[in-house]
Design a binder for these strands. Structure first.
Lengths: 281, 281
DNA sequence: GGCAATATGAAATAATAATTCCAATCCATA
DNA sequence: TATGGATTGGAATTATTATTTCATATTGCC
């Protein structure tokens, strides 16, 4: 009988679980360790793993052989492959998914595409966000009497969530929306004691830019979330964040922008709480 | 002068980018390769990596030394650590981050928390989404004359993005918002030839539930996005999706809901295009 | 164009790690 | 409790891999 050698982690896991009962003591010990600490198996040396698991290196090799591998090294490959898979950059997957969706491969492919776009955006922003900017923006907003929230079109959902969250946190805010065409007047009320969160991505909604310009001229500090240093918003802003949202099928993921927006909002809430606590003390 | 040895991947990356200009040709070559194929560095041997990058193993070691490491092995540790980090379940990180943010560990921790919550939600939905439900929902919506979009409060941002996207795709839609208090009338216009996308999470906004009930009684099919099978929305819906959004600091990530919403929207767009193409043929 | 400093390639060497082997131990069974 | 087979520990061996070295090539500078 020729042993079926597990080539992927799940098969391997199943194989181990399957024999669990019939394994000798020390082998069972290393088997349990392997399933509990797969990363260690992927990166460690036979000696280091054996030591951590409390067995001899030779036992580790016997374990591998029992499973049909010809040695520890080939067993380790499976554990490494697992990390590679799990980690294979979302960017590559996104490319593949775009092609697949173009080719008309069903609606699941579209869904996967949006998931991948969102994940990519989250990874990017998590890497590139500047902590100092975050602190600056939060300080600036925490001092404001009223926080105005300015965004149209595709950025509007973010603005509406910010307004909702600010409201929940009992932070005075005003969403600048267009329903009644009174934006200009609304904008006119803002003073340098207030602050603005403005969000706009290319192609920048002209109304957003115009209103940001006016409000900046009134001396109101602006925190901007936009997509490049060439953005017209960046020049009006006291602090601005560059957020590169991946898109799919023509629609931008908003996940990174949402996360940043929430961090700003909750950050302001915390800062205010700390400040009022300090005043009391 | 003692070189500051990068201990984590991001620092390393920054260090490489920083010197990019001043590196000799072959070293630059391996530097570029390292940033493009970090996984290969993590798992390969000096010889295999050198071969893939088209340089000598010794060059690889010189590269590591330039960066302040004492050899390839310690450079490789950083690349391995990165995989370990990235792979440690987001759930665990989320727990840790929550604790950290509670302890008042600065605003970056809050931001990281929202990122982790979003990632967790994306992972979850990607695992649990039922393809058949997705197909059903898209078919149902594609047949509708007008798509009504119903959501309040924290779900409202998703609804507004759906409405924006449907508009972009030239799909007739109506966002049921409360501005003028005419919701009841708006809801009254819907017929069985239309369809509804309704979104609500616990605690379910009473208005959403009530409007969904009315509209269901009129025989209008409903696609619901909600958070459990006990949701009152589920009972009115023809198709419903369970989306478990992780929360952080009291606010739900909307990333998974957004991704699903976009998949539905774009899916409907595609289905309509296919259908009209077929009619012409 | 010639010289020095720097960079590169290739092979030798050193270090490290995997595997094998054999003796000792354990365990089930008669 | 004696016996055979399976299991285990530990050191010896072998293989693999990182590192060093040195000769050669390239580059920048006078």
């Amino acid at each position: 009988m020729d042993e079926q050698v597990p080539r992927d982690f799940e098969t391997l896991r199943a194989a181990i679980l399957d024999r669990r009962e019939s394994l000798p003591k020390r082998i069972a010990q290393i088997a349990a360790y392997a399933l509990d600490n797969p990363d260690d198996i992927a990166f460690g040396t036979a000696a280091s793993i054996a030591a951590s698991a409390g067995v001899q290196p030779s036992t580790l090799i016997r374990f591998a052989q029992q499973l049909g591998f010809d040695g520890f090294t080939s067993l380790q490959q499976v554990f490494r492959e697992r990390l590679r898979e799990r980690n294979s950059s979302y960017d590559e997957r996104l490319q593949a998914l775009r092609a697949k969706a173009e080719g008309g491969a069903g609606h699941r492919a579209i869904f996967d595409g949006f998931i991948a776009a969102a994940s990519t955006s989250l990874n990017d922003i998590s890497r590139t966000l500047d902590d100092a900017h975050l602190e600056d923006a939060i300080s600036l907003l925490a001092k404001a009497q009223t926080i105005y929230v300015l965004a149209k079109r595709r950025s509007y959902p973010v603005a509406s969530y910010i307004a909702y969250a600010l409201g929940k946190l009992k932070i005075r805010n005003q969403l600048i929306e267009s329903a009644a065409g009174l934006n200009a007047e609304m904008v006119g009320f803002a003073t340098p004691a207030d602050a603005v969160i403005a969000i706009s991505f290319s192609p920048y909604a002209p109304a957003t830019i115009e209103e940001a310009r006016v409000i900046a001229e009134q001396g109101v500090p602006i925190v901007a979330i936009t997509d490049s240093s060439f953005s017209p918003l960046a020049q009006f802003a006291s602090v601005w964040f560059e957020v590169a949202e991946a898109d799919f099928a023509g629609f931008r993921s908003l996940s990174a922008t949402m996360a940043l927006a929430m961090a700003l909002t909750v950050g302001v809430g915390e800062k205010r709480r700390d400040a009022s606590r300090k005043r009391k003390a």
